[in-house]
Nucleic acid binder design. Structure first.
Lengths: 366, 366
DNA sequence: TTGAAAGCGCTAACAA
DNA sequence: TTGTTAGCGCTTTCAA
């Protein structure tokens, strides 16, 4: 199984045709339409190809001619390391990859990290469409994607008029979660959320920043919390919201620390992701707070580790999200008009939410 | 931020040039070599482009012309779901993605699962090179990759003459692990390994099947175990080896069950991956065997969960593996001749290995 | 069943 | 600074 020298490509379809004394059409047919020539001739062509080291039609040239790249682009602005470490993101990636595999098309990861302002990679990607996963509405890469004359499907965020989207009903899901907490008796809550804009702000969040967040999902979740708690008589302006730029367990812990240091009276920490919630639980343990006796902690996503820990959270079908997005994109030729697909979520009440300690009335039997 | 109708591409570089009354070169330069024309002219060109809905040079046409696809292909024959669920594989993927990102090239996942015999996807991938991750030596997709006139780097397996490769020194690593077990006193061992060929065999493995395994890594690990235990006076022909096709915790458990049901005298279960080892530990617990008191269990890879569990295992730098492979591929233009890079491994003795229960002599102070 | 002609949309010498 | 010329390697009507 030795290999000849790499990067040969001496032979082309044309040179093969010349060698054999047939037309290029015939050689092309030998590869793409076996039924268009005699088996004997085809055999001869393929054999000569092997002899000449012709590796078959060049995929790029074919793509140019057929106007089909045979690949789907994935734009993922999040830092890659985080993307691969967040089980929710990996699930989406897996689902999308499965959809691509079913369709026999490649999945092209576009090199675009938050730091890299260079949008050229988007222009250079030879793909038939893009899936965009959870980016801010002012992301320059996203803008570049939307300029390309190919269909696009957005997963989660942002919400853009006229562009297909797949995601959960964040507002409804968070509302149910909030109602659960309200019914338990929590009135003094704190929130720990993911980054709201492209600039780093590892700190408390002003009302202004909340309502103008460039990450729609976070904004919608905060709005839903505000609405639900306001309905329960809580003045949202008094509810502390802490933001963390990096989406890691460690940042979840430090966010919780900042929150609880300043607002020790908080009875429940609502996190907008499981990763942050897991960090918050670690911080609770560090300060000697028992969850859920002394502190309620909730998450969002429903990743496997959350389930193991019994975290009260909102489960969303991440694998499905990727799959549906892929299928939507690959089937978009037949459709007219944009489509928005809302995936179901499920409130999973675990062992990390309970009535606040400060409520003295008995909760059961009352 | 509304969008015009999708899939327009009415305008091309040529039509833009005609509209403006300049040459195509000039328009091309406006995009690719801004310093080759006056800022004023460039501005005019870009503005007209926007007005006409010209999305910039077509990436496929550009690739054809420049003979650069701007992407690296990744061949991963393993079922995608398993690939994304095995932290070792995810680590490799992450490392490779990071290397690609650094170089500004895309990462193109080739749709190729074990079932899919269709090799066309490999031919259709517009890439400048391939990274092949852990496939059997008779994999048809691999053969197709090697026929393509682009550089290729193989991670882990197979070992092919003349092709670049990145991986650990499996034999050395396993030998150290075996010596650790031998020094503890283990003589009655059993092995649980990953699949050895493309056909399923969830059963015991014959000597013949061991030595002709198409997955080189597994073969090498088994050979190293055989050599090390033979040196300690163990007749390898008497050592039971169980194989599992799917690489899951559940299959690790069922493999251990099959092994221990038939060979209850075994004092140590050597698993060729952490995933399998974690399953084996679950099975040990199920049968009431205390690890390591009643049974020693070892793994391979050094994934995070193994570390949390205190598993005795061989750690290998998976992220590094992907990164190095990517860099090797992307820098291969400057090199001559094939290159093999061996990554360091580390034996990590945890809490799952101890002297066998049947050994009555005191091990310390003796 | 096979071939001739006409591009797909672009970039890179080279020349002006 | 801009334009002319010549393909990159392939597929696809259409005609023979």
């Amino acid at each position: 199984m030795g290999r000849p020298i790499r990067t040969r490509r001496q032979a082309t379809l044309a040179s093969l045709a010349a060698e054999l004394g047939v037309s290029r059409t015939t050689v092309s047919n030998a590869y793409n339409r076996p039924d268009q020539l005699s088996p004997e001739l085809r055999r001869r062509i393929l054999e000569t190809a092997r002899r000449l080291g012709y590796p078959g039609p060049d995929p790029v040239a074919r793509s140019l001619r057929t106007r089909k790249a045979g690949a789907v682009g994935l734009l993922l602005t999040e830092n890659l390391s985080y993307a691969f470490r967040d089980p929710a993101a990996v699930g989406v990636l897996e689902g999308l990859a499965l959809a691509c595999e079913d369709a026999g098309v490649g999945l092209h990861l576009v090199p675009a990290s938050p730091g890299r302002e260079d949008v050229a990679a988007v222009h250079r990607a030879g793909v038939d469409g893009f899936v965009v996963y959870s980016v801010p509405d002012d992301d320059p890469h996203l803008a570049a994607v939307l300029e390309r004359p190919v269909p696009t499907v957005i997963i989660d965020q942002p919400r853009i008029e006229g562009v297909d989207r797949v995601g959960p009903d964040d507002a409804a899901a968070v509302t149910r979660l909030a109602e659960h907490l309200v019914s338990l008796g929590h009135r003094q809550v704190g929130v720990l959320c993911m980054r709201l804009a492209r600039e780093r702000n590892d700190d408390f969040v002003t009302a202004q920043r909340q309502s103008s967040a460039h990450f729609h999902v976070q904004r919608i979740r905060l709005e839903a919390l505000a609405t639900a708690f306001s309905a329960a008589g809580v003045d949202w302006a008094t509810v502390p919201v802490v933001e963390r730029f990096d989406h890691t367990v460690d940042d979840g812990a430090s966010g919780a620390r900042q929150l609880l240091d300043a607002y020790p009276q908080v009875t429940a920490v609502i996190c907008t992701s499981d990763i942050l919630a897991i960090g918050a639980m670690a911080e609770a343990e560090r300060r000697g707070l028992r969850v859920p006796l002394d502190l309620t902690v909730t998450g969002f996503d429903g990743i496997a580790e959350a389930e193991r820990l019994g975290l009260t959270t909102v489960h969303q079908p991440v694998l499905e999200k990727g799959k549906v997005a892929g299928r939507l994109l690959l089937g978009s030729a037949e459709r007219v008009g944009p489509k928005v697909i809302t995936l179901p979520t499920e409130l999973r009440i675990g062992r990390t939410s309970a009535p606040p300690r400060t409520v003295e009335e008995p909760w059961f039997g009352g």
